[in-house]
Design a protein around this nucleic acid. Structure first.
Length: 443
DNA sequence: AACATGTTCAACCGCCGCCCA
DNA sequence: GTGGGCGGCGGTTGAACATGT
């Protein structure tokens, strides 16, 4: 297979697996259930697809962009729900058709949105004060540079060009590819959206745990944190933090950077995550649906292995501080935990970002293992956590590095939350938690 | 049904550091 | 040494969408 074709295929599967309506969140599932209950059709995430498809339809109508060739236009009015591109009944007849179909409708969804207009107007005002941007703004006004949402055609141009020429040199890439975009914009679009090794869908509990832990150590070093969550972008993690974590801090009426909130995260939230992850595992959470084993999800992890960071879907990188940080860490009391050194040949590796004292640990290749703790043990919450671990250890053979799960116990990290049984990440922070925190902290 | 409010996330921005002529 | 180009980073924005009233 030609490398270009291989790239297209990878992107194709990546897009299919990454689409939001392919991995609906809890609210989507709720709406789907409601629709089924009302006899409105049972297609999973139908509403989501429809709304997005409709948005895209508006988008395509509003621009001079070529409509998607295989799109099944709604039979009646534009208010009808058009079949999403990906759900088209017409099989793609060529690689270009496939590629066109695989582009997420959201990319062109807001083409006519007033946001672009507002943004440009705002930018105009800014440029009057910042002469250095005047030239680029002139280019925008002259139609030489585009801003705002990317169109399908632009995505195609970028994907094709990167597939054949590689990344980097974004400014020249933008020119060479015929994109009327800045190099920055191209880079951002590729890294945050089109890159084939991206993972989409909800942030898994494991990832949440890791984000919380790493953020407690590094703060808003999103890119650094993202390096430890393969397939996740710094933008995604940043958005998660701002929309989820900060929301909880707001609910608790405390600053997200306050020690109080950090304590809540460490002693309540993270143990709760651990508990729920283990509960899901103990409940025999279903394995990923058939076919996922060979999807880009796996390939993305494998792709990560190409970078020397990750060896398998289970080989998440965990900071050495998990094990060696001062304090009464749970794992330090576990004789099965080795010191982070070369003594565990093949199982440890220094991080590329050792400058900040971060080190990563690579689990043995071949066996997906999950490290289950990410929080210090110095509170009742952690006592609960310990209890969970103790119960778990009775059932499991000791693993190489402390408490782990095997792949048979837990779905792959990449599995969207809705696939992990009844796991509901939205309710991780419960009313009980709020009450507990209010009582203990006097908030 | 209509409106208000909250949430999500793609895309933008300015700033900074690195590299190179 | 210096200035420009470039890429990367973190912060911010706002349209679309979801949910509540």
């Amino acid at each position: 297979m030609h490398p270009h074709q291989l790239q297209l295929a990878r992107i194709f599967y990546s897009r299919i697996s990454s689409l939001a309506f392919f991995k609906p969140g809890p609210h989507i599932a709720r709406r789907a259930r409601a629709r089924r209950a009302l006899g409105l059709g049972g297609a999973r995430c139908e509403c989501e697809c429809a709304s997005r498809g409709q948005g895209m339809e508006r988008s395509m109508e509003s621009t001079s962009q070529t409509p998607l060739p295989t799109r099944q236009l709604p039979p009646s009015s534009s208010n009808s729900n058009p079949t999403p591109t990906h759900w088209s009944s017409s099989p793609a007849s060529s690689s270009s058709d496939i590629l066109i179909q695989l582009i997420d409708p959201r990319s062109a969804l807001r083409e006519k949105s007033s946001r672009g207009v507002i943004s440009r107007e705002r930018k105009n005002l800014m440029d009057m004060a910042h002469e250095r941007d005047a030239s680029s703004e002139e280019e925008v006004m002259a139609g030489e540079l585009r801003r705002g949402p990317w169109t399908v055609e632009e995505d195609l141009l970028l994907v094709n060009y990167v597939a054949s020429h590689g990344e980097g040199r974004w400014n020249s890439l933008a020119r060479s590819a015929g994109l009327k975009r800045t190099g920055k914009s191209c880079r951002l679009r590729w890294l945050n959206y089109l890159r084939p090794d991206l993972r989409r869908g909800n942030i898994t509990p494991q990832e949440q745990l890791l984000i919380l832990e790493l953020h407690s150590r590094w703060g808003n070093r999103w890119s650094k944190i993202a390096q430890h969550l393969p397939g996740r972008t710094d933008n995604e993690i940043k958005n998660y933090w701002r929309t989820r974590v900060q929301k909880h801090a707001k609910q608790l009426k405390c600053d997200v950077n306050s020690q109080q909130f950090k304590d809540v995260m460490r002693y309540l939230w993270m143990p709760r995550l651990v508990e729920r992850i283990q509960a899901a595992a103990a409940a025999g959470a279903p394995q990923p649906q058939t076919g996922t084993a060979d999807t880009p999800l796996s390939s993305s992890w494998q792709h990560g292995a190409d970078d020397g960071l990750y060896a398998s879907p289970g080989d998440a990188c965990w900071p050495a501080e998990y094990y060696s940080a001062a304090g009464d860490h749970q794992l330090l009391n576990n004789p099965a935990v080795p010191e982070l050194s070369s003594t565990t040949a093949g199982s440890s590796s220094p991080s590329s970002d050792s400058g900040a004292g971060a080190q990563t640990w690579l689990a043995p290749v071949g066996e997906a293992e999950w490290f289950t703790t990410a929080c210090d043990a110095s509170s009742a919450a952690v006592a609960m956590h310990d209890t969970v671990l103790a119960g778990h250890q009775q059932q499991q053979q000791p693993c190489l590095l402390g408490e782990t799960w095997t792949s048979s116990e837990l779905p792959e990290l990449g599995v969207a939350d809705f696939e992990i049984g009844s796991f509901d990440v939205e309710s991780i922070w419960s009313m009980d938690d709020n009450l507990w925190y209010t009582q203990t902290q006097g908030v």
